[in-house]
Design a protein around this nucleic acid. Structure first.
Length: 113
DNA sequence: TCAGTGACTGACC
DNA sequence: GGGTCAGCCACTG
């Protein structure tokens, strides 16, 4: 049974909120969910979301801006292609100016206004 | 039920 | 400054 309150669902919801042309990290999502030490679980959720095309998992990368999960995509280059298609410079599985494109749910979803 | 694994992160050497 | 170790939570076997 999939409860919307499930940790996974929360992760999916946040990932879906990621605007095109922006990226975030597993730790940022985990931190937003109140589990900054469970970044691995977030990645695990992505693994479970593998079959859900509604979830832009390609916008989720590790703390170093490295496309660690690209190997899980059908095409190893698909993840980079999607990111570059959104205007995000990716080279050698690594996002250039990652910090510049970084989208933090803790800030964006809690923006005072 | 217990143990192992995983798309991570931070700290230590 | 770079590599290694341990911790964390959830799911599968």
């Amino acid at each position: 049974m999939s409860n919307e309150d499930s940790f996974f669902e929360k992760v999916y919801k946040v990932v879906r909120e990621i605007p095109a042309g922006r990226v975030t990290s597993y730790g940022a999502i985990a931190n937003y969910l109140g589990m900054p030490r469970s970044a691995r679980v977030v990645g695990w959720a992505m693994n479970n979301a593998h079959g859900d095309m509604s979830i832009p998992a390609h916008r989720v990368v590790n703390r170093n801006g490295l496309l660690t999960g690209k190997h899980h995509f059908e095409g190893s280059k698909l993840m980079a292609q999607l990111l570059m298609s959104e205007g995000i410079p990716v080279k050698e599985n690594e996002i250039q100016d990652f910090f510049n494109f970084f989208w933090d749910p803790n800030i964006e979803l809690n923006k005072p206004m």
